[in-house]
Design a protein around this nucleic acid. Structure first.
Lengths: 144, 144
DNA sequence: CTTATATGAATGAACG
DNA sequence: CGTTCATTCATATAAG
């Protein structure tokens, strides 16, 4: 038996579904611990399996709802005269976030964006790591 | 198909992991620039992918460590019952990634202390969900 | 056995 | 930075 994947027993699934039915969606680490401990009575299980189970269950619930809404919207779209903008689109007209990044440490924040220019490089000796000797400046030595 | 998401090539992953292994955690904009330039040799990639890669890798490393600590706390906390031996934990070699999950929400904090003894019944709300009355602390009250 | 589906696992992207 | 969401990959199981 390849142990690459957790195979939940029916009892385990029933317990998890009951918890989900009662409103649990994103259990804390503590809750996951306890759930895992209990489910261990019915078979081998790891905490991460509980974590993934809730993640997946919630995500697929949402997905089902999304598809259902899309379906109704499609129906409505056929019968209406007005054009409908796809509401589920996240990116097209909406700049997601300027994924701005800062320099390595808390002080000295250099906000830059994609396709950046030269950037005068404030203080970091980053000539290392330059097209791969793959050497790091001081990160390997220590961290603040 | 949808190119909404960066699909890293094995070479790209190897390079990124090597950099991480050498201690790089939060690359500067300049470093990201150079890394991106190099990784472009192996496939399309944007700077923000490199940025996110390090963010995620670091975060999940820390999650793993945090949960490890939490696990040991729990062993001490649950004390003498001897339940839940680390069969989930074998070695640092085999498991692809030991489990990850969130740690705190609201007031159910983690309290990463070094060594705490038996803890004579703290008034934490983590007593809920304890071997199944299956009661949920506050999950039933919300509706996301 | 082959194909289709359900779902565990993983991770890129982004939020608060 | 920790957390959360969406999408994808991988595989156990069901259907044909």
């Amino acid at each position: 038996m390849s142990n690459r994947r957790w195979c939940p027993t029916p009892e385990q699934v029933m317990v998890l579904e009951e918890l989900y039915r009662r409103g649990l969606r994103t259990p804390t680490a503590h809750q996951i611990q306890k759930i895992t401990a209990h489910l261990s009575l019915y078979g081998n299980i790891q905490g991460k399996s509980v974590f993934y189970w809730f993640q997946n269950h919630k995500a697929r619930d949402r997905q089902k709802l999304r598809n259902k809404h899309l379906f109704y919207q499609t129906l409505h779209f056929q019968g209406s005269s007005g054009m409908m903008m796809p509401q589920t689109w996240r990116s097209i007209t909406d700049p997601p976030q300027d994924w701005l990044m800062r320099s390595s440490y808390g002080h000295d924040s250099v906000m830059v964006m994609e396709n950046l220019g030269p950037i005068p490089t404030p203080n970091q000796p980053l000539q290392t790591l330059q097209l791969f000797p793959l050497t790091l400046p001081a990160a390997a030595a220590n961290h603040p």
